[in-house]
């Protein structure tokens, strides 16, 4: 079965935050950015906008870092998610994630994207294609292991 994940093109990101609002409305029924599972690093002086979202790595560093086995990867879909029953918000995964994609909410709860069952509203609401949800191997940006390099490709 082919697996889908996110692809990021920072070059195309305008920093509008529509993905954050969409996420927040879907996940917590609020319009805001604090509890959104996608985070946009807005480096204003550099003119660089970098979306951070879980890329569902093949071999996730967050899983290795977690001492409570609270992060799981679904072998069929490839999606990584947090088991809220087991997580104690220690933030070891936040430190481990190479993409800065694990988010700490204002109340210190650790948040991670769960791809909304394969139908993420954030990617649908992205006006520029900076954030896409596509098949991992035949996808728009190649394999996810290359994601970090690809983020800054044109």
């Amino acid at each position: 079965m082919s697996q889908k994940t996110f692809f990021i093109r920072a070059d195309s990101c305008t920093g509008c935050g529509m993905c954050q609002l969409a996420c927040s409305l879907v996940k917590v029924k609020e319009a805001g950015t604090g509890r959104s599972r996608i985070f946009i690093e807005r480096l204003v002086m550099d003119g660089l906008m970098v979306p951070h979202i879980c890329l569902n790595c093949k071999s996730p560093a967050c899983i290795k870092a977690c001492r409570r086995k609270a992060i799981v990867k679904d072998q069929a879909t490839g999606w990584v998610s947090i088991d809220r029953e087991r997580c104690n918000n220690c933030t070891l995964c936040v430190a481990a994630c190479p993409f800065g994609a694990v988010i700490v909410a204002p109340d210190n709860e650790v948040l991670m994207c769960d791809v909304c069952g394969g139908n993420p509203k954030c990617a649908e609401m992205c006006p520029t294609g900076a954030l896409r949800f596509a098949e991992r191997d035949r996808g728009v940006a190649g394999p996810a292991e290359k994601a970090a390099e690809n983020i800054f490709k044109g």
Partner: peptide, 26 residues
């Protein structure tokens, strides 16, 4: 700097309206 959020009257409707207007504008 604000990390709070707006609590809409009808979040589902707000998202739907927002998506529709997004499509309309684009």
């Amino acid at each position: 700097r604000g990390r709070g959020s707006l609590k809409p009257h009808d979040p589902g409707k707000m998202l739907e309206t927002y998506s529709n207007h997004f499509r309309q504008i684009t």
